[in-house]
């Protein structure tokens, strides 16, 4: 039997952890391996990736790490475009050790400079016309890959009533949600975003909680699937990550903290519901920041108590990093929701 050195199945598989009687979290070491492998496998099968192909992508980190691991094992050339605010030098060094070329653009506005990154990527594609762009923002492969997570959830939980997950590209929540809802039509899909991310209608601004949210709108965010959206500020997310570590022994990244926070609130307000939560990555990358008291103490307002429950809002607007808000999205399109927002004013 051939040994598939490039499969990384164990690293791709989340630990299914029970957070409460009715809550199961899929805690991933590196969630993005799931879409990255699926996208590369499909491209290989379709003949789009041959020999020493050159892969390109824009990423805040975890998708880049996943592609870098696969590209190294499969001997592809890889260029990643990121922003200086999104990736520390240690993470960059890890990617470079895997053989990836990392282009880190300046980010004067602190919004991730996604526009600049896409322009830079366009430039590379013009120079290397047969480069393969994994397109996590809009390729079907991103969301289709999460059938495997839906499989793992049903195997460990059976019937599922609520799915809670972060939204960045939309792949994980909308993909897992699409598959689960095809068998459980009443499934509630609850998205986790953060203030000043434009995904669910907030104005663009500087985000402190990174990894989820976005400054541009990827096609893989399908608003019509979402029943309810939460904007979790950086501070409640950080506190939630600390609690996950202390109470459950789970050392996860801050977006996992945000998802756990919302998941636990959903389970308390719906004690009969079975709640599945997606946790995208581990905490190691954040050891010097989110898990460092000195770094935390430099954050303006860190000592102010963070929201312990969400405030329901009907006007979509940004709030301070201590705040946690939620909105009844009701499976509507972004246009439909925004139209009502402007007429309300």
């Amino acid at each position: 039997m051939r040994f598939d050195a490039d499969y990384f199945e164990a690293l791709e598989t989340p630990r299914m952890a029970r957070l409460a009687a009715n809550v199961v979290a899929a805690a991933f070491p590196l969630m993005k391996l799931m879409p990255a492998r699926y996208i590369l496998d499909r491209a290989e099968a379709a003949g789009e990736l041959k020999g020493k192909a050159h892969i390109v992508e824009t990423t805040s980190g975890t998708f880049g790490m996943a592609v870098a691991l696969l590209a190294a094992a499969r001997d592809y050339r890889l260029t990643l475009v990121t922003a200086s605010t999104l990736m520390d030098s240690k993470y960059q060094a890890r990617l470079q050790r895997l053989g990836a070329e990392v282009i880190a653009l300046d980010d004067p506005r602190g919004d991730g400079n996604q526009k600049g990154r896409l322009e830079s990527l366009d430039g590379i594609l013009r120079q290397v016309p047969d480069a393969f762009w994994t397109r996590q923002y809009d390729s079907d492969g991103n969301w289709l890959a999460y059938a495997r997570l839906a499989d793992l959830f049903v195997r460990s939980m059976g019937q599922i009533d609520c799915l809670v997950g972060c939204v960045g590209t939309g792949g994980s929540l909308c993909g897992t949600g699409t598959f689960l809802r095809s068998v459980f039509p009443d499934l509630k899909i609850i998205g986790v975003d953060t203030h000043r991310s434009i995904l669910f209608g907030q104005p663009l601004g500087k985000r402190v909680l990174r990894g989820l949210g976005n400054s541009v709108l990827p096609k893989n965010v399908r608003h019509e699937l979402v029943d309810e959206i939460h904007w979790v500020g950086a501070y409640p997310a950080f506190h939630a990550a600390h609690r996950l570590f202390r109470q459950h022994g789970m050392f996860m990244g801050p977006t996992s903290g945000a998802a756990a926070l919302v998941g636990q609130w959903v389970s308390k307000t719906n004690p009969e519901a079975r709640v599945a939560v997606i946790m995208p990555d581990e905490g190691h990358r954040h050891a010097d920041t989110v898990y460092n008291d000195i770094w935390l103490s430099t954050l303006p307002g860190w000592r102010t108590p963070a929201s312990a429950f969400p405030t329901k809002i009907s006007r979509i607007e940004p709030k301070p990093e201590t705040a946690w808000t939620r909105f009844d999205w009701r499976r509507r399109s972004l246009e439909d929701v925004m139209q009502l927002q402007t007429t309300d004013r």
């Binding site: 059938a147 049903v154 059976g158």
Partner: peptide, 21 residues
């Protein structure tokens, strides 16, 4: 991709003898 999840549902329903699933 959906069939992968259906296989998981079948496995679960047989393990726990769950006719609804």
């Amino acid at each position: 991709q959906t069939f992968a999840m259906l296989r998981g549902l079948a496995a679960r329903s047989i393990k726990y003898q769950d006719p609804h699933l």
